[in-house]
C-alpha cells in the first residue's frame, strides 16, 4: 500500500465519520438551537436569542408536575427492578435450583416483547380487575420492562471468585442476610449501579406504557406528547432540550464513575 493510498483512505474514513456524526447530531442541534428562538416558530430564520421558552416551560405547572412524576416513577420502579433482579441473580447463580434454564428464560422473556404489547396486556388486565390507571400502574409496567435487564446485567457479573468470598464469610459465621448485604452487594456495586442507572433512563424515557396506563397524573413523555399536538412550537424545543441536557449530564457522570472504576480495577 502506498502512502497516497493510505492517506486517501484516511481522508475517506474521516469524511464518512464526519457525515455520520452530522446525521446523528443534526436533529439535536436544530432542537437546541431553536429552543432559543426569539419568535413563535422553531424554524428558520433564527430571529435572535431568547430564554422566553424556557421560562414558559418552567412556568408550566402541568409540565413541572409531569417532571416530578417521572422522577418518582423512574426512581421507584428502578429500585424495585434492581432489588428483584439482584435477588433472582443471587438465587440462580449461587444455589442448586431445578429448571434454571426455564427460570432464566422466563425472567428475560419481556425483553423480546414490544413495550406496546406489554402495556396493552397490563391495560386490559387492570381494566378487568378494576385497578385504576395511575402512576403506580405505569411504575409496575416499568418494572416489567426493566427487571429482565437488571437481572441479566447483575447475573452476568456474578463470578465464581465472589462465591468463594461469600463462602468464606459464611464460614466465619455470617448469616445469609449478612452475606448478601455486607459481602455480595458491595462487591457487585458497579453492576448494581449500572442496572439502576439504565433502568432509570429507560423508565424516564418510556412513553407507550405510561401513555396507556396513566390518566390524570402523567409522566413527562406523555405530557410532551400532548404538547406535540400544538405542532412545531419552541416550547417543545425548550422542554426537549432540558430533558436532553439532564440525560447528557447523567451519561457523562456515569461515564466518569465507571471509567474511574475501570481504571482502578
Amino acid at each position: 500500500m502506498t502512502m497516497r493510498g493510505t492517506s486517501w483512505r484516511t481522508a475517506a474514513s474521516a469524511l464518512y465519520a464526519v457525515l455520520v456524526y452530522g446525521f446523528i447530531f443534526l436533529p439535536v442541534v436544530v432542537l437546541v438551537l431553536f429552543s432559543f428562538q426569539d419568535g413563535r416558530f422553531p424554524i428558520p430564520p433564527f430571529e435572535g436569542f431568547s430564554l422566553r421558552w424556557y421560562e414558559a416551560v418552567l412556568a408550566d405547572s402541568r409540565l413541572m408536575e409531569a417532571l416530578a412524576n417521572s422522577i418518582v416513577v423512574a426512581v421507584g420502579s428502578s429500585l424495585v427492578a434492581v432489588l428483584l433482579g439482584f435477588l433472582a441473580a443471587y438465587g440462580l447463580a449461587r444455589f442448586a435450583l431445578p429448571a434454571k434454564g426455564v427460570q432464566r428464560a422466563l425472567l428475560t422473556a419481556p425483553l423480546t416483547v414490544s413495550y406496546l404489547i406489554i402495556g396493552m396486556g397490563l391495560l386490559i388486565t387492570f381494566n378487568f380487575i378494576g385497578f385504576p390507571k395511575s402512576l403506580l400502574a405505569a411504575g409496575i409496567g416499568h418494572v416489567v420492562i426493566n427487571l429482565p435487564l437488571c437481572f441479566a446485567i447483575i447475573y452476568s457479573q456474578m463470578g465464581d471468585h465472589q462465591a468463594n468470598i461469600e463462602k468464606a464469610a459464611r464460614d466465619l459465621g455470617a448469616s445469609e442476610w449478612q452475606v448478601i448485604t455486607l459481602v455480595t452487594a458491595p462487591m457487585l456495586w458497579p453492576a448494581l449501579f449500572a442496572a439502576f442507572f439504565l433502568s432509570m433512563t429507560f423508565s424516564w424515557d418510556e412513553f407507550i406504557i405510561s401513555f396507556l396506563l396513566t390518566r390524570f397524573d402523567v409522566t413527562l413523555p406523555v405530557e410532551i406528547w400532548s404538547l406535540l399536538r400544538s405542532g412545531l412550537n419552541p416550547k417543545t424545543n425548550a422542554v426537549g432540550s432540558l430533558v436532553f441536557g439532564i440525560s447528557a449530564v447523567l451519561v457523562v457522570v456515569l461515564e466518569l464513575v465507571v471509567l474511574r472504576k475501570g481504571r482502578r480495577a
Partner: peptide, 15 residues
C-alpha cells in the same frame, strides 16, 4: 443523542 427523549427525537426530525 440516544439519550434525548424518544418522543422529542421524532419531533426533532420534524423540525
Amino acid at each position: 443523542p440516544f439519550w434525548t427523549s424518544y418522543v422529542v427525537r421524532s419531533y426533532s426530525w420534524l423540525l
